[in-house]
């Protein structure tokens, strides 16, 4: 392969090139995050998200992306609680393309993930698993890359796995009053970045802490009907 070709594929890159947006990224629909990640999420590959405790907004980070691309299946494996269909539909996710898999043991979960990726009919895969070894991560990364799929691996640790896993990106999330703070530990094809703040206030105004209100317990003045973040499709 010619060097030019390698450069075009960004398998080899020059330091001075890495300023503009990368055409092989897909927008996360969060402008600050897109700017920080030079275009957004990778098109394919495995992304590790160290979320800490469930419920800080880790899925809200992904919903705009998932609502956008729905020509193929979106597979959810072992979510920590029931996936609320009402919420998914509200966020614009096509439930007819959503597949939920529950596995008894971690081996089966990994098997299901690999089968789903290798089938070629799955565009996004979200897996909750406590840990991956380097060979497992490598296999999933190769499967995702080879089948044009983007896989998110979510786990409840606050810090990403220490070992250098052969995957596309490693991020850790922390809650903020209006959204999330993302620490980018690794992102293939660019320099290591410092942390970035993702503002979810615009999409979910009713879930952000209002700045004018003191944070104490008390009846909120807002109406009982919460605002919709997205128009249903």
């Amino acid at each position: 392969m010619a060097l030019l070709q390698l450069e075009k594929e960004r398998l080899v890159w020059r330091a001075r090139q890495l300023t503009g947006p990368d055409h092989r990224r897909q927008s996360s629909f969060y402008p600050t995050l897109d700017a920080h990640l030079q275009g957004g999420w990778p098109q394919t590959g495995l992304v590790e998200l160290a979320c800490g405790p469930a419920g800080i907004g880790e899925l809200r980070l992904l919903f705009p992306l998932l609502a956008q691309a729905q020509s193929r299946l979106q597979v959810w494996i072992n979510p920590p609680a029931e996936l609320n269909g009402q919420a998914l539909a509200q966020h614009g996710i096509d439930l007819s393309q959503t597949l939920l898999i529950r596995c008894q043991n971690p081996q089966q979960a990994l098997w299901s993930a690999e089968q789903s990726l290798n089938s070629g009919c799955c565009s996004h895969l979200i897996l909750w698993a406590p840990g991956l070894t380097a060979p497992q991560a490598k296999r999933l990364q190769v499967s995702a890359k080879g089948n044009q799929a983007l896989m998110f691996w979510l786990h409840p640790q606050a810090e990403p796995s220490t070992s250098a896993l052969p995957i596309s990106a490693r991020l850790s999330l922390a809650p903020l009053a209006t959204g999330l703070r993302l620490q980018i530990h690794k992102y293939q094809g660019q320099w290591p970045q410092n942390s970035c703040q993702v503002d979810m206030h615009e999409l979910w105004p009713s879930l952000a802490i209002p700045t004018h209100l003191p944070t104490h317990h008390g009846p909120a003045p807002s109406s009982t009907i919460a605002a919709l973040p997205f128009k249903p499709r």
Binding site: F63, L83, N84, G85, A87, H91, S206, I225, A227, P232
Partner: peptide, 16 residues
């Protein structure tokens, strides 16, 4: 798949 209208009230994505 039978499509169905979702509720307009904000609901959590993970439910116990």
């Amino acid at each position: 798949y039978q499509a169905h209208q979702a509720t307009t009230y904000l609901r959590p994505s993970l439910l116990f």
